[in-house]
Structures are given as structure tokens and as C-alpha cells.
Design a protein around this nucleic acid. Structure first.
Lengths: 241, 241, 241, 241
DNA sequence: GTGGTCTAGACCACA
DNA sequence: GTGGTCTAGACCACG
């Protein structure tokens, strides 16, 4: 008959209220929240409670903290870091395996490629072309770090060309988590990777999603196997500090 | 020549260290972390810094806090709350729309159903059957809240029958977010919904994924349109408190 | 289980990075660091943080700052000022006494003289001869300040003739600190000092380290006692400004 | 005729004034300096200038900064970190080599052992005994980090038993810098090292400095050669971050 | 609630 | 132009 009393903690009420302000568009991306001290007064709580609430929102990627004179808490435009972190945690906790992740990625990239083949605009293709060119340069100039970033961008641009940011939200985090394995395994892309991607783009331009899916499946499987050769049990050994 | 410096804050280092302990399996789901006060001593920081770190991990669903004598911070087995929260935030921030979400859900449920059709076990089907029966009862007895919970479970069980928890991680949060709209729009399931789901299960049992996808697509579109009739702009008006 | 966290400050990371550049020989003595404003951009921090880092390196003697258009921060070739300052501070803080210092100096000068007796080259002896001659002139012409400088040089040249700069690093600072006492006590060298040093050089030229040590011990003890007559408690009274 | 104008910078004047306060014993180890904000007012300068001065004193080990309510700048009792840093920098800058350092260390440890043989008290020996025992345990239990710390302590205790802290100031830093090489070369002490040190203590107890020196020379040479086998050019390769 | 840390932008003196 | 100095305001951390 009675519902459980929800002894909400101060920081939960505060972060929920701020989230509501954002949901109601009274706070928009780029807006600055009042200083911590002022929020504490407004909410009638200690600064600590405010800080914990802000920490919560920050770790969710809803706000970002800046130091300095023009600093403060700013509403972000939102990103997929929360999803990435969730997937990492599920791997850590053993709830999913690298095999699970690769399978899911394969399947969902199929969806992405079909949507992209149907909808990608010229601008999307141009951005992807530029990415490939930059990536090729990074490979020949052995700028590994830049190259990694560009590979991540490639999958981001692909997902974005579906014109549905929800697809970005679901696929980019998977790419990023797998990317951590690639980095740890010290797998380095070669120019053949660029050739393969270029071919994939060709299929997309021809609106031939089947061939595109085939191409990507082959690539993702290759990467997966390379990771497993290095980490046979699908986990990155933790380095002691 | 010089790389940008990143002055890590105390709570970031702490939460990262705890995450590493989990990744290395030295901390496993169900384990209890030392009391905050002791953590503060071990890390050589104030209790506040520890609290902010724990807050971070809690909001990510990695740990759960219990009050009381036998309370403390316990490592969770991990869930999809982080993803749900991310999707909600993206909607709030206007980064994705309800249309985006429904489309993504439609497509990815297609993947889920194909995998489920191929792999679902008898146990999976039994659980789904039981869910349908419970749901039917909840409808006739007008226990709306229970019914909502059971609908959520239905999609969870479907995703789980792919035998790949990564699929659960990606689809259940979408179902939950849409579910918030259904609740807000005061859309109530009828027995016809049960009939439709029953039909879907039949297709799955026959390993006929195409018909299953067709069935689900029709249902999800119906729900989507019902929501839009109530909230034409695809957002839930915020109620002032 | 958990290690203490050490939240590095921005300037610490920056000065460490610059030190690494030097250690790796990518920055060499004489090289000019980028302007403060540019460093701030490269490191992604404020100019203040950069300045605190440069201050750190400057007080360690690793870099030197020049004002003006062609100014900037230049990598130094390194010196023993840091050691001198340390010894001064230890005296100020009462961690060591003048007696401690004199004893250590006596003992270690023994080591220096033995090494010098074995290894000093003709060039070393020539420089020492010239130093003595200059010193003698400064005494008769009552150029006290020059004379002080030349005395410091004498000990520097002695240490250097061991062909081991580490010996310079350890002994010259002690000489300089004692020298401060000599100056404060207004003890002025006489020509007899020159005679004694000349004798010492003779012993070294004969590779007779025992006699050289004996000679120096006698001299250092004399100086020590002269200082104690003036400052019986072994400290220089601080003059109010 | 005219001396160069000394355009003293604000922070130099400030740090010099604070050093004078310490030299005059008006500020003693453990005392707390006024808050930065107040110092800025007292000196009539900006907080920036004060911070640069404090940074200077901090890097010299004269003061230490504490965070928090009861935090601030505290006068330290003084240490040898400044000397250690100087020696490291001289190595980085190529002014001295590992060979130089080892030779100097060999010679000066000879002085230390002679003084220690003459003056070490029972308490000194007891501490050294305890150190050996702890060290032995750390070796068998493979607590490498603790073992390193204990080795550093061993040399510190030896130098301290000369009853002359100036000897500590000169020798411990050399031991610490060499220790960095030992760590980098991953040289791990064995129980035979403990046996050798035990023997050395025996000689000291018998006041037989010659045998003690012989023992230590052999050990230091062994370590030196082990380092050179790993780093033939006497430098630790810098790891890219 | 105190105190350290960091920031952005400004003006000055110098070479 | 480059270092030297200054200001005001915000976060970070402590007890």
C-alpha cells in the first residue's frame, strides 16, 4: 500500500533539478551555471553537496568544469563518453566479453552501413575522404597517436552519415573500447587499411550496402583476431603502477 | 615539442585506481570497499575527495552505496543505467530526437530478433511466455505500474536471448527511455498487445526472423505514433514542482 | 591495497617535462626555450603556471632568464649554486653547524688533494700559479673584493684538478659558504696566506699528498678559529635592513 | 666605478626576506607563514609575486606547502633534496658522468667510514642492525620497493653515525642518484648483499675502518659495473610519454 | 570556511 | 617582443 520512502540524498535532488532545467531548455548547451558558492546558497545546502551533484553531472558528460576567472560549470552539448565508460565497466566486471562486443559491433555496423548507403550526403563523403587522406599521411609519417584519433573519427563520421545521432551514440563507444585494445596490443595500421576503407567508401557511394557490409565485416574480424593473438583471453593485463 | 599538461584531480585518480582494481579482478562484484574513512587514510586524501570519487563510480553503476551498520560501498555486477542516463541526456540536450531513437531502435531490434531467432533457448522462451502471462494478468487487473515493469522486462528478455549481453546493453536503455514517454503519455497497453507479442514469440520459435521483425516494426511504429499524438514535438513537457 | 594519490600541480608537470627534454638531449645548454606565452599555449595552461615552472628551474640553476627582445629562458650548463644554497639553508635552519662544515671540508679536501696530487696537469698548475700571483697583487693593492673572488677560484681550481667535476660540486659550495663567514668577519688575507698556498702547490707538484693535506689542514683550522673569535657561536648576526 | 644595477625582481626580494627571517631565527622549522593573500598585502605586491617566491623556497626545500584549512606554507627542518636535484641536473646536463659520481662516492664514503668507525654509538649500530634485518625480510618477501627505501636508509644511517650532518648532506644525495640507476637497471639486491653489509658493520664495531672501506669499495664497484652492463653509456634512456 | 591552485587578460620596463 | 608584474574570480582540497 505504501511506497518505499525514497530518502533522496541532497546531491541527487540537486543534480536532478539541474537536469530538469536542461530538459526544460531553461539551461542550454554553453550556458554557465552559477558559482558553486552561490548554488549552495540557492539550494540551501553545503558546498560539498553541490560539488557532489556537479561531479555526478560532470561524469555523465552533462556539464564540464572550467578553472580560472572565466571558469565555472558549463552545460555541454552532450557526448557518448557515458556510454563508452559503461561498456568499459561491463567488460571490467566480466559482464560482457570482447567476443560479445565484436559481434554486436559487426551487426550494428551492418545497420549503420545500410542507413549510410541510403543517406550519406556529399559533405559526409568529402569529410570521409579527407579523413582517409589525413590518416594515410599519419601512417606514412608514423604519427601513431594522430592515426589512432583519425581511425576513431572515421567510425564517427560513418555513423554520423546515417543522419541519426542515436546511431553515433551506440556505435562510436564500441569502436572506442575496441580501440583501447588495439592500442594496448600495439597493432599499427598499414596503408592496406586505407585501401580497404577507400574501397568501402566506393561501395557506399554506389549505394551498394551489401558489399560495404562485407568489406567492413572482413576488416573488423581481422582486427578482432589480431587482438586475440596478443591477448588470448580478451582482456588487457593491468599494469601495476 | 611539449605536450599539454593534464592536472588530474584527486577524485579522478582515486576512481581510476578503484576501477583498475576491478579490471584486474582484485575487486569483484559483491566485494565491499573499505569504509570511506579508511580509504581516505589509504589514499592520503580527505574524506571529501574519496566521497566524490565514490559518487563518480556510483553514478556509473560500478558500485552501490548501502547505509547502516553493514553498509558501505559494494562493487555491483554492472548494468545499463549509465547508457540509459546518457540517452536521456542526449534527448534533453536536443542532440537526438524521439524519431532518431525510434528509428535506431527499430533497426537494432531487427538485429536482436535475427540473433534471437537463431539462438534463443527453451529457457528463454519459457521466461518470455511467463512474462506474457504476467503481463496479461496485470492488464486485466489494471496494475498499470506492474504492467510497465513487465513490458520493460519483455524487451530485456528478448535481448538476453541473443546470448550476447552487449545487445542488452544497447537495446534495453532505448526501451526504457521510450518507456518514459509511454508512461507520460498515459498510453495503456491492451490485451491486443499481448496477442501481438505472443505472435512474435511464435515466429521466433519457428526461427522465422523476418516475420518477427515485421511484427515488431509494426508495433514500435504504432507506439511511436501514439506518443507523437500526445506530444507532437517529441518532448515531454516539464512539470513545474 | 591502495596507494596514496599525489595530485601533481601544473607547474610540477611542466618543469618535469622540460627537465626530461634536457635529459634526453633534445634541449642542450645554450638553447633557448620558447617564450612564456608560447609555452603556455603548448602546455595548455596559463602563463602563470609556466612562470612558476620556470622559476623552479631557474632556482635550480637549470635555466637562466634574460629580459629584453632577444631575451628568454636559456638552458644553462649547470653549476653548484643549488648545493651552495642547500648548505646555507641547512646552516640557517640549524641542521648543521660551522664546526660540522669545517670538519667535513677538512676531510673532503684531503680526498681532493690526494686525487689532485695524482692527476693535476701542467695546465692546472699554471692556472693555480696565475691565481696565486693575481691574489698576491690584490692583497698588496687592497682590492679586498677581488681577493675574495680569487680565493674562491683557488679552491675551485684545486677541485677541478682532480679531473672529476663531482668533486667540484661537493667542495666548492662548502668553500663559498665558509667564505661568507670570512667576509662577514672582515678577515683579510695577508701575504703569508699566499706563501702557504704556494708551499701547498709545491707539495702537489711533488705528488706529495700527505704534506699537502697537512698544509691545508693547518690553514683551514686557522681560518676556522679566526671566524670563531669573531662569531663565537658560529652564526653571522643578521643585520636589520 | 659604478656597480651594476641589480634589478632585483619582486619575488627575489621576497624570498630573500623570508630566508633572512629564518636565518635570524625569527622563523623556525615548523612555523607557519602567513597566507599567500596576506603576504601579498604585507609585501605590497600581487599574490603572483608571492607565489613565485614561495615556489622558489619550496623547490629549495626551505618551506613546504600544505593544502586545506590548516594548510599554508611551513618552514621545513631542511633536507638534502636540493643537493640531490643538483646532482641529477649535472648528470642531465652532461657536466658529470656516472663514473665521476661513483669515484667521488667511493672516496667520500672512505671518509664517512673512518669517521663512523671512530664515533658511531651503540644506538647507531642498533639502528643499522634493525635496518639490515628489515632489508633482509624485504628481500625474501620480494618487496622490492621497500627494499630500495631501506638501502637508501642504510647509507643515510651510516653517514649519520659520523655525528656530522654535513656528511649526510654530501653523501646521501649521491647514493640517491645512483639508486635511480639501480632502479632503472632493475638490479635487485640478494641476500649476499645483506651478508656483505653485515660484515661491514662488524668491521665498524671493531673500529677497523680500513677493512670497512675495503668492503664498501668492493660493493660499490660491483654495483657500478652492474649498472654499466645495463646502460653502457652511463645514462638512463628517457622514456617517451 | 579557509587556503592553495589556476586562469585570462592587462600594463610596464627592458633590450 | 619578451620577461616582470598585477588583478579578480573561480575551482580544488582540507578539516
Amino acid at each position: 500500500m505504501f511506497k518505499p520512502v525514497n530518502t533522496a540524498r541532497a546531491f541527487e535532488i540537486i543534480s536532478e533539478q539541474i537536469r530538469l532545467e536542461i530538459e526544460s531548455k531553461r539551461l542550454r548547451p554553453g550556458d554557465k551555471l552559477p558559482p558553486e558558492r552561490e548554488l549552495a546558497v540557492q539550494f540551501g545546502v553545503s558546498r560539498n553537496a553541490v560539488r557532489e551533484a556537479l561531479r555526478n553531472l560532470e561524469s555523465a558528460g552533462v556539464i564540464g568544469m572550467q578553472k580560472g576567472v572565466h571558469g565555472g560549470a558549463f552545460v555541454q552539448k552532450g557526448g557518448y563518453d557515458g556510454v563508452t565508460q559503461s561498456i568499459r565497466d561491463m567488460l571490467s566486471l566480466g559482464r560482457i566479453t570482447l567476443n560479445n562486443l565484436t559481434e554486436a559491433r559487426l551487426e550494428i555496423m551492418g545497420v549503420v552501413l545500410r542507413l549510410a548507403a541510403a543517406r550519406a550526403t556529399d559533405e559526409d563523403f568529402n569529410k570521409l575522404d579527407r579523413n582517409l587522406e589525413d590518416s594515410r599521411l599519419a601512417i606514412v609519417e608514423k604519427r601513431h597517436e594522430d592515426q589512432m584519433k583519425l581511425t576513431a573519427d572515421f567510425y564517427y563520421l560513418l555513423a554520423k552519415s546515417t543522419q541519426n545521432f542515436a546511431m553515433v551514440l551506440l556505435t562510436t563507444p564500441m569502436a572506442e573500447v575496441v580501440h583501447r585494445f588495439v592500442t594496448a596490443a600495439e597493432i599499427q595500421a598499414t596503408e592496406s587499411v586505407i585501401a580497404s576503407r577507400s574501397e568501402l567508401l566506393g561501395h557506399l557511394r554506389n549505394r551498394d550496402s551489401d558489399k560495404a557490409v562485407e568489406n567492413m565485416s572482413a576488416h573488423l574480424k581481422t582486427v578482432h583476431e589480431a587482438i586475440l593473438r596478443r591477448f588470448p583471453d580478451g582482456t588487457i593485463p593491468v599494469v601495476e603502477v
